[in-house]
Amino acid sequence: MVSSRYWALLALALMAGLGTPALAADLPTFTITFKPDGNFDPQRLEVPAGRFKLVLVNESQEPVEFESLPLRKEKVLGPGVKSFVVLNVSRPGDYPFFDDFHQDAKGTLVVLPKP
């Protein structure tokens, strides 16, 4: 028989998991779109330093992969898929990114100092 303590811990774990999407929803949000011609829109995106959400939209009919080596972040998207990554970048600077499946597609995330 399962104890009431087990159920209390399970309920707490579920509530903790449900809070995570709300935290991502409250972040400043920016979008990068993978276009059918193999380019990004925009190719240069300015964001403030700190924690933010980067929405990735694949408008192409092929899989794509957002990848940034300096940010240590990658995300694969199937055709027509929309997803996001949460980044926390404290150092201002230029951070290149690319589509690992289409090596010619390159862009830059420009992190600006906090106001």
Rank of each mutant, 00 (worst) to 15 (best):
L109I: 12
F34Y: 10
K53V: 06
D26H: 07
F84R: 06
K73Y: 00
M1V: 11
T20W: 04
L18M: 11
K114G: 05
P92L: 06
P21V: 12
V81T: 05
G17Q: 09
V64R: 15
D26A: 15
T31K: 14
P28V: 11
N88Y: 01
Q103H: 09
L112H: 01
P115A: 04
W7K: 02
K82Y: 02
D41W: 04
F98Y: 10
F97H: 10
D94S: 15
H102L: 12
F66E: 06
R72A: 08
Q103Y: 15
P96S: 12
V64P: 10
L45T: 06
F98M: 11
F84W: 07
F98T: 02
F30V: 13
L69C: 01
L54V: 01
P113C: 13
V76A: 07
T108I: 15
L18G: 07
V85W: 07
K73C: 11
T20S: 04
A22K: 05
D94M: 12
K35L: 15
R51A: 08
P92T: 04
N58Q: 09
L14C: 09
L71D: 00
A105S: 15
V86T: 12
T29K: 10
V57I: 10
V86G: 09
E62G: 08
Q103N: 07
I32M: 10
V47A: 12
A105G: 12
S68D: 02
D104N: 12
K106L: 15
A8V: 11
Q43D: 11
S4A: 08
F40D: 04
N39P: 03
V89Q: 01
F66Q: 09
V55Q: 02
R91E: 13
R5G: 00
T29Q: 13
R5W: 03
K114W: 00
F34D: 05
D41E: 14
H102R: 12
G80E: 09
V81L: 05
P96L: 15
E62S: 15
T20F: 06
S60R: 06
L10G: 00
E46G: 05
G93L: 03
V81M: 11
L87K: 04
S60K: 00
P36I: 08
A13E: 00
G93R: 10
S83K: 07
A49Q: 03
F34R: 13
V81W: 01
D94T: 14
G80I: 08
S60C: 06
K75D: 00
V85P: 06
V85Q: 09
L10A: 13
P42F: 11
M1E: 09
P115M: 03
F97E: 12
L9D: 03
L14G: 01
E74K: 13
S4V: 14
Q103V: 11
P92G: 02
D100G: 13
A105T: 05
D26E: 12
L87M: 06
G50I: 11
E59Q: 14
R51F: 00
E62R: 15
A105V: 07
A8E: 09
E46K: 14
F30K: 14
L9W: 08
E74P: 01
G19I: 01
